[in-house]
Design a protein around this nucleic acid. Structure first.
Lengths: 199, 199
DNA sequence: CGTAGAACTGAACGGCCGGTCAGTACAGTG
DNA sequence: CACTGTACTGACCGGCCGTTCAGTTCTACG
C-alpha cells in the first residue's frame, strides 16, 4: 500500500464519518487533502471501490487495536474487560457512526457486506480465544466461549445503536454497568471481581 | 390522512425496503403506483419529507402490532414472550432492513432521528409496563422493569444486526434460544417456564 | 541528454434526478 | 351554466457529481 493511497483512505474514512456514506462526494475527499478530484479516481478507479476500501481500512484499524488489547500480558479477565470496555459505546461514539452506516450500506453492496462480515468474524474469534484461554487457566468458567462471544457482541452492538442514534437516552455509566454485568454473567464471576481488576 | 397519501406512503416504504433509503428515487415510488412523478411532489412537497413520513408510517404500523400483542388477555409472561419473539429477528428480516437503514439515516436527518427515537421510546415503555404488570401480579420478579426493557431491546437490536447483515452467521433457532434465555433471566424464571407457556 | 512511466491536474462531458410550471380533467357549489 | 378548488400530468430545467481525457511535471534510468 503506497503512501498516497493510505492518505486518501484516511481522508475518505474521516469524510464518511463527517458526512455519511450516502453523502460523501469524491470532491470532499480530494479537497480534504488539497488535491484534484481526478487524483482520487486515478488511485481508486471508481467511487464504489474507494468507499469499500475505506471501510476495509477502518476495519483493519479496529482489529489491530483489539488485538493489541487482547495480546497484553495479564489475566484473560483483565484483557476481556479492556476489550469489551473499549468496544462498548462508552467512549466517544465516533467509530460507531461509521459501523452503523456500514451495516446499512452492507445491505446493498456485497463488497461492503464482506468487509463487515469479516470484521465481525475476526472480532468474535479473538474474543472467543481469550475466553477459552481464561477457562483453560481456571480463571473462570464458560460452557461455550463462542456463544458467549456472540451474545456479548450482540449486546454491545445493540447498546451502541441506542447510545449513538438515540443519544442521551441511556447514560454512559449505566451502559458500562450493563456491559460489565453481562461479561461477568457470561464468565460466571461476580461483577465485583471485574470492577476490582486493575488493568 | 387521505387515501392517496397512505397509498403513496405504503409504496414509499416498500420501495425503501427494496432499494434502500439512499437509492430510492421519487420516480420509483411514482411508477410503483403508475402515477406521475409530479403527483408525489404534489402530496409531499419534497423527497426528504416523503422519506421521513414513510418511516413514521412504518413505525406506527410496528407499534400498533406490538400493542395488539401486549394487549391480549393472558398472563404477562405469555404476552412478553409473544412480543419478544415477534421483535426478534427470527422471522423474516424484512422489517429489520428498514430499521437498520433508518438508524443510519437518523444519524444525519433530525426528523428521522425523532421518528426512530419515538419508536424506541414507545416500544420500551410498552414492554416496561407489561413487565411491571407481571411483577404486580406476582408472576415473576424484576427489580427494575425499565432497565430490563432496555437491556432486552439492546440485545434484540444487536441480534437483528447480526441476523440481517451477516445473514447465515447465526442460526434462527440459536437466536431464539438466546432471546428466551435473556427474557427468562430478566424475569427470574426458568427458561422451561417460558417455552412451556402455551400462547 | 533522451525517454519512459508514474503522479497528478484542469476542463469538460453527460446522465441523472429533484423540483417547477403551465396546463387539463373533474367534482362540487350556487 | 359559470366558477372554484383539488387532483393530477407532461414537459422541461438546472444543478450536481462521477467519470474521462488530453495534457503537464517530475523522477529514474540508461
Amino acid at each position: 500500500m503506497t503512501e498516497r493511497r493510505e492518505e486518501l483512505l484516511r481522508a475518505a474514512v474521516s469524510q464518511i464519518e463527517e458526512r455519511g456514506v450516502a453523502a460523501v462526494r469524491i470532491a470532499d475527499v480530494a479537497s480534504a487533502l488539497g488535491v484534484s478530484n481526478a487524483l482520487v479516481l486515478y488511485h481508486f478507479s471508481t467511487k464504489e471501490k474507494l468507499v469499500a476500501e475505506a471501510f476495509a481500512y477502518a476495519a483493519e484499524d479496529d482489529l489491530t487495536h483489539l488485538r493489541k488489547l487482547l495480546g497484553r500480558r495479564t489475566t484473560a479477565l483483565r484483557r476481556l474487560r479492556a476489550a469489551v470496555r473499549w468496544y462498548a459505546p462508552t467512549g466517544q461514539a465516533k467509530g460507531w457512526r461509521l459501523w452503523i452506516e456500514g451495516w446499512a450500506a452492507a445491505l446493498r453492496e456485497p463488497a461492503l457486506r464482506e468487509v463487515a462480515r469479516n470484521l465481525d468474524r475476526e472480532w468474535k474469534a479473538a474474543i472467543t480465544e481469550v475466553v477459552a484461554e481464561g477457562v483453560a487457566a481456571g480463571e473462570f468458567r464458560c460452557p461455550d466461549p463462542a456463544a458467549a462471544a456472540q451474545r456479548l457482541t450482540a449486546l454491545l452492538d445493540g447498546l451502541a445503536v441506542q447510545m449513538t442514534v438515540y443519544e442521551g437516552t441511556v447514560s454512559r455509566a449505566r451502559t458500562r454497568e450493563w456491559v460489565d454485568e453481562a461479561l461477568a454473567g457470561e464468565l460466571g464471576v461476580e461483577r465485583a471481581e471485574l470492577t476490582a481488576a486493575r488493568s
